[in-house]
Design a protein around this nucleic acid. Sequence first.
DNA 1: CTGGAAGCTGTGAATTTCCTGAGAAACGCA
DNA 2: TGCGTTTCTCAGGAAATTCACAGCTTCCAG
Lengths: 249, 249
Amino acid sequence: MCAMTTTSPQGRTELLRPDGSPVRVLVVDDELSITELLSMALRYEGWQIRSAGDGTGAVQTAREFRPDAVVLDMMLPDMDGLAVLGRLRRELPDVPVLFLTAKDAVEDRIAGLTAGGDDYVTKPFSLEEVVARLRGLIRRSGAADRRSDSVLVVGDLTLDEDSHEVSRAGEGIHLTATEFELLRFLMRNPRRVLSKAQILDRVWSYDFGGQANVVELYISYLRRKIDAGREPMIHTRRGAGYLIKPAVS
Amino acid sequence: MCAMTTTSPQGRTELLRPDGSPVRVLVVDDELSITELLSMALRYEGWQIRSAGDGTGAVQTAREFRPDAVVLDMMLPDMDGLAVLGRLRRELPDVPVLFLTAKDAVEDRIAGLTAGGDDYVTKPFSLEEVVARLRGLIRRSGAADRRSDSVLVVGDLTLDEDSHEVSRAGEGIHLTATEFELLRFLMRNPRRVLSKAQILDRVWSYDFGGQANVVELYISYLRRKIDAGREPMIHTRRGAGYLIKPAVS
DNA sequence: CTGGAAGCTGTGAATTTCCTGAGAAACGCA
DNA sequence: TGCGTTTCTCAGGAAATTCACAGCTTCCAG
């Protein structure tokens, strides 16, 4: 009845640790709104989340929580991001870290860090991006059970999360970054109606304040590239949202 | 926490908690008429309901009531909706929340709310919509989730609440949003006569002031699409209402 | 058999929702 | 810096949906 399954609440396949327990992620940011937002979204992935508001708390929590991955803001009140990283590494030498950083402060410091297999996203980020990067990190770190499953397939449409390659019926399709994220979100929820609000919340960055019809616009772009001439896979449910499903159905 | 389903003697599927006790829902709104309306409708679902009129009361009640889901008006007298959400989350990190919000306030403030798996409906809402969304949230918040839970079946007629797809005898049928909600209401109460007043109260928003014969109209639409030629499933009980049941009977 | 009540449905108009072209602004890269 | 690409706003138009109205049919009581 309540047995552990490999199917997440969304009906997608879920990352699990080798022993079947949920993946653990530690979120470190001093802005409460950010930790809340991330905690929510990552819990929804079926992961176990703890959060900390500063470097000291992060190291402490890490020590007893033993996370499989850490989301770490580089800008913390009490400690420099690098210092936190150092101490984290002393506790958990192999844990992969996803850095959160301001847009402009990227190049200099992060570049070297990600060489070790870590990754980063810039603020403001989209949740799809964070989730995707985290999944990648966890998958590559070997903490998760199911390895090398980075390809989403819906009908004759495939999307590779690692190489960012998309093709339909074997034919390669070039997508822009936003188009790619939108399609990934759709494909991670096949045959499910996703409202424009859900899509906006998930695919666009959390501070996006624009018109909601960007979703319509990008759906329109995607259709041009994905459905173009062929049997349509992206469908509108008027008054409800959009969904993707195999063409033959 | 995980929800399971059982079938009541009336032939109606209801959500239950793992230990067999009824699902608990906390309703938070400052308008008494709204909390009353919702409490009534949700109790009718077989759920256990508590209500609160402000943020403080909501947090207090949540602490001891431990609800499985919360219906939360974004516009409360003492606290901002987001503030209430924050405190609720501290008490119950994983409880799903259904937000009630004014129609025009959608764009600005909802951003980010559906990201964590929460959902919202705009005022004025229809009860069917609230119930359906709540069922979805509760279902998805549980560890065990079977896809079939989202599919209603009556005879050879099926309705998928996730994909919003309807088919009879395997043949897909396109329904508009209102038709879909009406059919869902009928199918959730098979073999039961539903009066036009009941239907109006559940399927149309609570402030609907139009002609009562919209129900007849939409029943007519549905028949054209569902029964069209085939053995009829939607029946009129003159002077009483309508009911749906399997064709062979 | 008949009249009224209840229910059914065609017509059409108002409204909502969605799609998409055009162009401005922002971005990335050389 | 300059150029091509990407993102996004705006607005017009197309299409779908909702609903009122009114005439018609069906049912039933007397």
